[in-house]
């Protein structure tokens, strides 16, 4: 009896020790670049599965205006200190222009007034942060598809990159989406939030809304749109500020 007890205790102790060792191994493993590369395959799996589900381009749920969050949490950059941006705020974005460049037939430069004059879509949607919280807001702005059609895409265009005015930590914020999401009806450049001009904390003068992806894809302070066929040459090559820091490029989950 005592012998069995001892062996049981031995089993528990060695089992726990083995488990601990194994988990410490997992911890170390995630720091090794090769292993990280392997784990990173979740991105392609998630994206392929969701693209199958989203083949019919369904819309993200739109809510009643009564469901709008009383306070919409402002996250990430909320008051950029970049001198060029501060100057724009000072002049109420009078000298601001959104450029559309890269693999397009006709590069564009639109003032805020021109952008506001374009046909706009209004949508009340839920914003899901990668951290786990959600807030509901109403967004108004022109569809990205309209701008891209006006500019005219070149045949080998694949991605739309958003260059932003804010510096987070040591580098400039940027984001990118592919044409599947770029031409979705709910993908808009919002200049109005809850019926008011977009506040600085939320990305004035315009922020991207890609409603079927997480918060970090909703780039704020958008200054320039660049159409490309590869993301490799931009910043860290991950296709976005947070992507360069380990987050998935496809943020549908």
């Amino acid at each position: 009896m005592s012998r069995t007890l001892l062996s049981r205790r031995g089993l528990i102790v060695s089992g726990t020790a083995l488990g601990g060792l194994w988990l410490a191994g997992c911890d170390r493993l995630s720091q090794a670049p090769e292993a990280a590369k392997f784990l990173d395959r979740d991105d392609q799996l998630n994206m392929s599965a969701q693209r199958l589900l989203l083949a019919g381009q369904p819309l993200a749920r739109e809510f009643k205006t009564s469901e709008i969050s009383r306070v919409f949490k402002a996250n990430g950059s909320i008051a950029p200190q970049d001198p060029a941006y501060l100057a724009l705020v000072q002049s109420r974005f009078a000298n601001w222009a959104l450029t559309v460049t890269g693999l397009v037939q006709r590069p564009l430069a639109l003032s805020l007034a021109q952008l506001r004059a374009l046909p706009a879509r209004t949508q009340t949607t839920r914003h899901d942060c990668v951290e786990g919280w959600s807030a509901i807001g109403q967004w108004t702005g022109p569809q990205l598809s309209g701008l891209l059609r006006t500019a005219g895409l070149q045949p080998h265009a694949r991605y739309v990159v958003f260059h932003c005015a804010d510096t987070l930590g040591d580098s400039r914020y940027y984001e990118s989406i592919d044409l599947f999401d770029a031409f979705h009806p709910q993908t808009i450049l919002a200049h109005t939030m809850n019926g008011q001009p977009l506040a600085v904390a939320h990305g004035a003068p315009i922020r991207l809304r890609v409603e079927r992806q997480l918060g970090y894809k909703q780039a704020k302070y958008v200054m320039g749109i660049e159409v490309t066929n590869s993301l490799d040459h931009i910043e860290g090559g991950g296709g976005g500020y947070w992507e360069d820091r380990g987050y998935e490029w496809y943020a549908g989950i």
Binding site: L23, C26, D27, S30, Q31, A36, L39, D40, R41, D42, L45, N46, V130, E131, W242, R245, G246, Y247, E248, I253
Partner: peptide, 17 residues
């Protein structure tokens, strides 16, 4: 937690994979 340090990005990779 996996990893032991606060690291949401790596935690998500492990979770989804």
């Amino acid at each position: 937690t996996l990893p032991a340090n606060r690291d949401l990005a790596t935690g998500r990779r492990w979770h989804f994979f």
